[in-house]
Amino acid sequence: MIPAAFDYKRAGSAEEAISLVGEYGEDAKFLAGGHSLLPLMKLRLAQPAVLIDIGRLSDLSYIRDAGDHIAIGALTRHMDIEQSPLLGQHVPLLAHAASHVGDPQVRHRGTIGGSIAHADPASDLPATTLALGATYIVQGPTGTREIPAAEFYLGFLESALAADEIVTEIRVPKMNGAGWNFQKFNRRAQDWAIVGVAAWRRGNESGIGLVNMGSTPILAVSVSAAIASGAAIDDAAKLAATDAEPQADLNASIEYRTHLAQVLVRRALTAAS
């Protein structure tokens, strides 16, 4: 539980953070809320030589109405997302999903940008923003670029983010009254989901994000296609794992995980319809 020795640099701005990572290269890691990175360091599974602390970039902590979408600063804590009236009105699925992340301590420290950059398929917010068709704004040494959530997640803990880029903003389309539901199936309240489902539906349109059903967050496009073509929910839900690649672990075999996804997608769509 004692991490290997490391240097610590605190960035005063996004530009400084990017310049610091340019200086230290692959030996450096960004530290935001620290709730994914620090446990790995304590187990010595991660041994970065330098931590670049971006946790105090308070200008990256905001939730703003940007017309057709809500813009969320990457350093916004889960608790602020959970309690945001703006999100509650326009993107209630995201606010609700944030209330299921970890426990209150985690939600007061962890950030949405950190969660997305970590790209953990078992985390709630990557799959939820994926379901909502979010776009991530990332900043690097040459400026900013936009990456659609659907193109962001490349593999286990692997994303389209370059080593010298940071996520600065998450843009989430307003849900405009769509029905929604979030299912998180786990054994203890504070655990990662064994399987989670973030779903919204407006008539034949829907978006369904799956948590912990593969090496990346999964968009259940086959289910949405079935709904779009008028399939009944029970039938559409049977396709829940079609786009997934579930893995086995101590809590779930592949068969059980597949079954859970079907049950939970059915329940989520029923509640959202």
Binding site: P39, R188, Q190, D191, L250
Partner: peptide
């Protein structure tokens, strides 16, 4: 309902951390 020290066939404990060894918390 929750706890088991789970060993693999090579005799390694597979869930030696509080993230994996499921001690229930107050909310559970």
């Amino acid at each position: 309902l929750y706890e088991v020290a789970s060993y693999d066939e090579n005799g390694n404990l597979r869930n030696g951390s509080l993230a994996e060894y499921l001690v229930p918390a107050a909310s559970d």
